[in-house]
């Protein structure tokens, strides 16, 4: 059996990510407990409410287990709230909110504003002539990138897709556009580790 990809299914757009991974030929598993996490080799952290996801990571005992796996270099993809959880510092979060530090970036929660400021737009992707449709929902903004962080894609000069080692983070929602290039990029990390 090949490597197993999981989707953190505590809250949020986990079903949409599983559907995107299925289109890439990967049968992903839901992860809700430390036992579920132990059975996967890579993890997608979906969008949703980062405050809720943090609380449920603590309550389910997943927080420590996930920190350990990230330290070991498990490939992770975080989108929107998932990026916030993977970041090293959060602005405008709740006081009890924590982050896992897989990506040395500072993000501002709801940096683009409320739902009325949500939008979709074409985004240039490196290595491809075709732009991808990127959907930003009450999206966070990356306001600082550490030296070891590679900016993979930018919108109006602002980073929206970043990579550090085997961690990938997007402020937008590649699972909502039907364009699976970012999921394929992420699945490629599994071949590298």
């Amino acid at each position: 059996m090949g490597p197993v990809t999981g989707v953190l299914a505590l809250q949020g757009a986990f079903a949409a990510h599983a559907a995107a991974l299925a289109r890439c030929g990967t049968d992903a598993r839901d992860v809700r407990t430390p036992r579920d996490l132990a059975a996967v080799d890579a993890l997608v952290l979906p969008g949703g409410e980062s405050t809720t996801i943090c609380k449920l990571l603590d309550l389910s005992g997943l927080r420590g287990a996930l920190e350990a796996r990230i330290a070991e270099g498990m490939p992770v993809l975080g989108t929107c709230a998932g990026l916030i959880v993977l970041s090293s510092s959060v602005l405008d979060g709740r006081p009890d909110q924590f982050c896992l530090g897989a990506l040395d970036v500072t993000v501002r929660r709801n940096g683009f504003g409320r739902q009325r400021d949500s939008f979709e737009t074409d985004l240039a992707v490196p290595g491809s002539a075709d732009p991808m449709r990127a959907v930003f929902i009450r999206a966070p903004r990356i306001v600082r990138c550490g030296g070891s962080v590679e900016v993979v894609a930018s919108l109006d000069g602002e980073p929206v897709l970043v990579r550090q080692g085997s961690a990938l983070g997007a402020t937008f929602h590649p699972e909502l556009s039907g364009d699976d290039r970012i999921h394929r990029l992420f699945l490629g990390f599994l071949a590298e580790v």
Partner: peptide, 14 residues
């Protein structure tokens, strides 16, 4: 519609 349904997706499991 994608942006509207997108927020509904984010509220799932909550």
């Amino acid at each position: 519609m994608t942006v509207k349904r997108g927020l509904a997706e984010m509220l799932k499991g909550g």
